[in-house]
């Protein structure tokens, strides 16, 4: 029973990281109707920047996480402006290939700057004392990750529901043409979406590396793909869906690894994605999309 609970909590913690990453995917997909393949690599950049902040520049952990968020925000806006904006009207195949190219570009630039050797992510306030409940100990990284996830989710839900920019985002995702006619600056809205998604990616990078402290240029790609799976699982375009999908996926992955096979953990996650897409292509909380001629 203790083992089961421990796996469950680890799963929720891993799933919370997926959920934060999935938010970036789901918001961008909902608004720009594109799969930002490079999102996973923004996580990696965020983790490297905060690593450098703590290891080389001697900045306190909180400040280095904030630096990473700023850098990732700028990076996200730059990527969108340089690579995706010229393709706003293009076929989705072209945009997707561009996004894959961008993902590769980020990985290889990181490889040139930081080298291929894995770096060990430093211990920060996130890895503080662990909490003992009965005979089970929960690490502080786990608790902080779950708390951060809940906090971000509440903040984002309020943001999209209450603020002017949030309303603009919902409008653009509903009908870009009509939103433009109503005087909403679509390009700016998409830029803001990328900015938020990338800032969240930086947080996710730090949280991920606090629990799994190995940092290399490909660190972001697998969690990125899994987070996209989570976004699809929960219903792409839906913010609560991303949270639900992320947490469920994390739990499934940890349980799969614990009870079925360690080697097949990834395969189980992807099998879930395929089953979900076949049974309910719009995801758990997504709205079914109608196709118009």
């Amino acid at each position: 029973m203790t083992a089961f609970l421990r796996f469950l909590i680890n799963g929720v913690s891993l799933g919370s990281v997926y959920a934060i990453i999935a938010l970036g995917y789901t918001m961008v997909y909902g608004i720009a109707k594109m799969l930002n393949f490079a999102h996973g690599d923004v996580i990696m950049v965020g983790a490297y920047i905060s690593y450098c902040g703590m290891q080389y520049w001697g900045v306190p952990p909180v400040a280095s996480i904030l630096t990473a968020m700023v850098v990732c925000t700028v990076l996200g806006i730059t990527i969108e402006g340089l690579a995706y904006r010229p393709l706003r009207q293009a076929a989705s195949l072209a945009v997707l290939i561009t996004a894959i190219g961008m993902s590769y570009l980020l990985q290889n630039v990181a490889l040139m700057i930081w080298g291929a050797n894995p770096k060990t992510f430093p211990q920060t306030f996130i890895n503080g004392a662990s909490l003992n409940v009965g005979d089970m100990s929960i690490s502080s990284a786990t608790i902080i990750t779950i708390l951060a996830n809940v906090l971000i989710m509440v903040a984002l839900t309020l943001f999209t529901a209450k603020t002017k920019m949030g309303k603009a985002m919902r409008c653009v995702s509903e009908d870009r043409g009509a939103a433009e006619l109503m005087g909403i600056n679509v390009n700016r809205t998409i830029s803001v979406t990328f900015a938020i998604g990338s800032a969240l990616a930086a947080i996710a990078g730090v949280l991920l590396c606090s629990s799994y402290p190995i940092l290399q240029p490909t660190t972001g790609s697998m969690p990125g793909i899994k987070a996209f799976t989570a976004a699809v699982f929960g219903g792409i375009g839906s913010i609560p869906g991303a949270m639900l999908g992320g947490v469920l996926l994390g739990v499934i992955e940890i349980f799969g690894k614990a009870y079925i096979s360690t080697e097949l953990g990834d395969a189980i996650v992807f099998a879930v994605l395929i089953v979900v897409l076949l049974v309910k292509p719009s995801g758990l909380l997504g709205k079914p999309m109608r196709e118009k001629v």
């Binding site: 690579a83 010229p86 393709l87 009207q89 293009a90 076929a91 072209a94 945009v95 290939i97 561009t98 894959i100 190219g101 961008m102 993902s103 590769y104 570009l105 990985q107 290889n108 630039v109 040139m112």
Partner: peptide, 20 residues
């Protein structure tokens, strides 16, 4: 891989951007 990535992006933008 770096060159490939840049080439992928540039080819896509050049062949799909209406202005260019």
């Amino acid at each position: 891989m770096l060159v490939y990535a840049v080439v992928l992006i540039l080819v896509m933008i050049f062949t799909n951007n209406p202005t260019i």
